[in-house]
Amino acid sequence: MCGRFAITLPTDAMAQLFAAQPANDLPKVPNFNVCPTNPVHVVQAGDTGRQLVSMRWGFLPHWYKSESAGPLLINARAETIAEKPAFAKAARERRCLIPATGFYEWTKSEDGARLPWYIHRSDGAPIAFAAVWQNWGADDPVKTCAIVTTAANQGLSAVHHRMPLILEAEDWGKWLGEEGHGAARLMQPGPEGVLDYHRVDPAVNSNRAEGTELIEPFGEDDIPRGQLI
C-alpha cells in the first residue's frame, strides 16, 4: 500500500517536469508528511493539455452521501481496479499521476514497535505514482484521487508486500490516455534496482510531524526484520 509520502519538488519544477499548466490553488511544498485526506498535486490530461491541479487524497465514490460514508479509499489495487464498482470507470476514463519525492512504509519490531522506512528512487529523481480520480458531490464537486498499488517487487518486499505503481516518463502519456489504449499493461511491479530505502525517525508515525528530518536516515539501516505491517 501507500499511506504516506513526501513531495519536495517546487511547483514550477513539477509543472515543467510533466509539461503541465499549474492551477492557482496547489498545496504548499515542501511537505515531508503527506497524509490521507490532504490535498495533493495531481497531473491530469485535458482537451487543452496536461493540468497540474489539487485533489483530495482519498477517493470518494459517487454513492457516498458524505466524506465519511464509507471506507477511506486511498489506494486502488491494480489486480482488481477494473472490477471494483468504486474504481472501474475511473480506471477506464480518469487516470492521473501524483508526483512524489518518496514514500513511507512500516515494519513491526519483535517487541511490537512500528519502524518507519523511507523509500525513494535510487537516482534521486522524482517519482510519479499512477492514480485514478473522481469528482464527488453535485453542487460543489470535490476532486478526489487514489494511488494504484501492485504487489511489491523483490527489492521492496522486505519492507512491505505492496507498493505504489510507479511509472517512468515514457509511460506517462499512455497512463494518462494521451496515446490510446494499453494502460492495463503498465499495472505490474516496477523493475528491480529503481528504489532504495532507509530507516527514518519514528516521529513520522504521527500525522502531525513535519520537517526535512523526517526523511533523513535514522538508527540501524539493515534489512528489515520482524513483522511487516
Rank of each mutant, 00 (worst) to 15 (best):
M1L: 07
C2E: 05
F5N: 08
T8K: 07
T8E: 15
D12A: 13
A13W: 09
P30F: 02
N31V: 04
N33T: 08
P36A: 02
T37P: 04
T37F: 01
V40L: 08
Q44R: 15
G49Y: 01
R50S: 02
R56A: 06
L60H: 03
S66I: 08
E67P: 06
G70T: 06
G70S: 09
P71Y: 00
L73M: 14
R77K: 14
A86T: 09
A88H: 11
C96V: 13
L97N: 03
I98D: 01
A100C: 06
T101G: 13
F103Q: 04
Y104S: 09
W106V: 05
W106G: 10
E110W: 00
D111L: 01
D111C: 03
R114G: 01
L115G: 02
Y118D: 06
S122F: 02
D123A: 05
Q134S: 08
A152T: 02
S157L: 07
H160W: 08
H161R: 05
M163A: 12
M163Q: 13
L165I: 06
E168I: 03
E170R: 11
D171R: 08
D171I: 06
G173I: 05
L176P: 00
L176H: 00
E178R: 00
H181Q: 15
A184R: 14
A184M: 06
L186F: 12
L186Y: 10
Q188W: 06
G190Q: 10
G193S: 08
V194M: 11
D196R: 15
D196H: 13
Y197S: 12
H198I: 12
H198C: 10
D201K: 03
A203T: 11
S206C: 13
G211N: 08
L214I: 11
I215F: 11
I215M: 13
P217T: 05
D222P: 07
G226V: 10
Q227W: 01
Q227C: 01
